[in-house]
Write a protein that binds this DNA or RNA. Structure first.
Length: 280
DNA sequence: ACCCAGGAAATTC
DNA sequence: GAATTTCATGGG
């Protein structure tokens, strides 16, 4: 499949299927690095590039991107080539509540984030709230990432973080997670944990490798697999998902949703979090 | 003061 | 092994 797009003055205009929503995709708890402006555009950083993105009709507009960056980074990052319309049709037929959840935020795409960023971000996410996670990730990038053209900061490398001490992480105010961040950075930097290998390893083995990191349990490992390595069979089970599964999907197991269970998870997670009255 | 937040480790039974 | 407690920090 070949995406149609134009590039002029470092502004990309890409033709989408028309179902994608940046708000659904960027504000549904996958990434902690995007901020919405008054005009509905989003500014954020990934793979060492800061861009502003917006949607107008069927057009996705990316400012501050070259043609090469679009082809090498953003087309994949936003998962623009996957047929979500067909998948929603398929998932919707599996369960009426899943149909409801997918219709609530039909514009969700699963981002293909930097694996190391997903690892550190979701380590930080444990027993934490989204507002504070965003603050900690911001401070992490400002302190240890590189300042980029466009105003943002890159996500720090594993090597950079591996060189730090717990005291040097104190200003992040990540609390007990500091030593988890360091253990993750050191194991990735040394190659003891090979994130790229987790892309192709059997799911159970990839998950087990991630869980050798102190501070990475089943849920965080599944988030890294889904959001960082696009392993769509992963089905992160946080408190919201446990509530949702027991009350909205009694007797349904994640495997029931199949190869794209992770996408179903994202519809259900967002739907649940935006409709807490379902669980009163 | 108390409770909770996209959990996981440490401890206890 | 399964259940409970603890772990920093910030906001309601």
């Amino acid at each position: 499949m070949n995406m149609k797009f134009t590039c002029k003055d470092n502004i990309i205009i890409a033709e989408t299927s028309g179902d994608m929503s940046l708000r659904d995709t960027l504000m549904c708890g996958q990434s902690f690095r995007w901020r919405e402006a008054e005009d509905g555009s989003f500014t954020g950083t990934a793979f060492g590039r800061t861009v502003r993105v917006s949607v107008k009709g069927k057009e996705l507009i990316i400012e501050n991107s070259t043609k090469e960056d679009f082809e090498n980074i953003w087309k994949d990052y936003f998962d623009l080539e996957f047929d979500y319309v067909a998948l929603k049709e398929e998932l919707g037929q599996m369960h009426p509540v899943l149909l409801e959840a997918a219709r609530f935020a039909p514009g969700i795409h699963i981002l293909r984030q930097e694996p190391f960023e997903a690892l550190i971000s979701f380590i930080i996410s444990q027993n934490n709230n989204i507002r504070r996670i965003e603050g900690i990730v911001d401070r992490l990038c400002e302190a240890f990432g590189e300042k980029l053209q466009g105003g943002g900061y890159s996500f720090p490398t594993a090597e950079r973080l591996a060189s730090l001490s717990a005291e040097e992480l104190a200003p992040l105010r990540a609390g007990f997670r500091n030593r988890y961040i360091l253990d993750a950075a050191r194991k990735v930097a040394s190659g003891e944990v090979d994130l790229e290998k987790c892309r192709t390893l059997p799911y159970a083995q990839a998950r087990a490798m991630l869980m050798t990191i102190v501070g990475v349990g089943e849920k965080v490992a599944d988030c890294v697999l889904l959001y960082g390595l696009h392993r769509t069979e992963a089905f992160p089970m946080d408190v919201w998902m446990k509530r949702a599964m027991s009350t909205l999907f009694p007797d349904v197991k994640p495997e029931f949703f199949g190869e794209y269970a992770g996408v179903a998870q994202q519809y259900i997670f967002h739907y649940s979090r935006m409709n807490p009255q379902l669980f009163e």
